[in-house]
Design a protein around this nucleic acid. Structure first.
Lengths: 251, 251
DNA sequence: CGATGTTCGCGAACGCTGTTCACCCTGGCG
DNA sequence: CGCCAGGGTGAACAGCGTTCGCGAACATCG
């Protein structure tokens, strides 16, 4: 068992070269993605040409184009998660500041990589269902956890105003019950349903303002989305009970 | 001049048949869109086959596939606008009730037509720029006007709490200035910048909750988006100063 | 009515796509 | 050294959007 683990950590050279080629393929595909602006720009033949191979050779590394795109999507999630965690760890160990930093990192990455944002947060490329998409949903869950952990910590350290179970209404209370149950047994033992709903609503506002900006659906009113985003952060800071912790971005 | 207008109103029979064929093409394309779930499902050859023609024949009606999709997008906007206006006119002539009805119509159409929603509110199919996309942006502006007119009427009849120009900050105030200027001279003479920002933020929340539901990015927490959407409407009703006007949906 | 010119639809073709297959060549193992 | 699994190639297939030339149907005018 341990020997297997060691062999997994130190793979044979062919496996190393193979993994290296796979990452190079994905890097080139990423370049084509940003150059074209959408996922339609990543094509098997052109990607293969830029890595110095022919199209059929890529089938040694990916079962097909869809799986390449899927693998890219997972990588993009991990990259975004990394940026958010780096931002979180680069500020003082205080939950409000970390929430602001993570939120800003989310927007910064999104506006800097609109094509990638569209891949992971826009229309799901492959229809959602039980299949290899799970790997992608799994990455999305990891992404959500970055926010969720901070919210849980915020709730534990500085409980914010949240609706009671009675305020939620029966239908919403029933809808959130499974996720609340999972959250209770896994991450947040003492978080009420109302706090989970407030967390969801905060994510909705964050996603809404960033998605609208990235998709260009806000340009008819405001050319740059940052001021509105910062105002959203300010409002959220008040909603969560730490208006004094809000500071304009470092820039 | 009037004779020309009459001739425009009563086109020759060839023109009528031509227009009829064009709409039939778009209807079939719509069917393929919903069947496939995304815009990639609308293909020239298959659409032509279902209308009883061959692919090159479609070029007599549309310059290419992109223009067909663009024309479909405009039609979808108009359809959604029609649903929203119908909902607005089907309730009592009271602005708060009409806002609720229009918002619910927006969500209902969106969740009932996810593929269409993705076409007009997701990643812009064709890159935004100065070109035939203007026709599409124009339709988007008409869509926004349905909401805007109601908000303006709400502001005139029952002014809601809005930040002052000082509260907005210089950058956001400068960003919104052009749109605020256009709004002032065209639709709302006495609306302050703060009210426009509140309007934008309400649209952000509405778009966020609906887009997340339609794209399936909320299913990890709640299977059905309606309760959360209704809670959003309830919150917005309070934000806009008419919490007593909120009523659960008729259903 | 007959001639004319415009419109419409079709078949063939071009270049492109993702994908499959048979073949070859090379690197690592027994 | 011999072998063989694995990486890479070229040809091929089906399908895509698009272009072109031709024939037939249509509306219009003499």
């Amino acid at each position: 068992m341990t020997a297997q683990s060691v062999e997994q950590a130190a793979p044979t050279r062919r496996e190393r070269l193979r993994a290296q080629t796979a990452t190079e393929i994905k890097q080139v595909a990423r370049q084509h993605l940003v150059a074209a602006g959408n996922v339609a720009g990543v094509q098997l033949r052109s990607v293969a040409r830029d890595v110095g191979m022919t199209a059929p050779a890529l089938y040694r590394y990916f079962p097909g184009l869809d799986e390449l795109v899927l693998s890219m999507t997972v990588d993009l999630f991990d990259e975004l998660i990394g940026e958010m965690e780096a931002a979180r760890d680069s500020v003082e160990d205080e939950v409000a500041s970390q929430l602001l930093a993570v939120s800003r990192a989310f927007r910064s990455w999104s506006v800097a990589h609109p094509a990638e944002f569209a891949m992971i947060f826009g229309t799901p490329a492959v229809s959602f269902g039980h299949g290899p998409v799970n790997e992608c949903e799994e990455a999305g869950a990891r992404f959500g956890t970055v926010f969720a952990q901070l919210f849980i910590r915020l709730w534990n350290e500085h409980p914010f105003a949240a609706p009671t179970d009675g305020d939620l209404g029966d239908t919403l209370s029933a809808e959130i019950a499974p996720y609340h149950e999972w959250l209770t047994v896994s991450l947040a033992p003492s978080m009420p349903k109302g706090a989970v709903i407030v967390f969801l609503e905060a994510w909705v506002k964050l996603y809404g303002v960033v998605a609208l900006e990235v998709f260009g659906h806000l340009q008819w009113a405001i050319p740059d989305g940052e001021p509105l985003f910062e105002r959203t952060l300010k409002t959220l800071s008040s909603d969560f009970g730490f208006p004094e912790r809000y500071r304009p971005p470092k820039a």
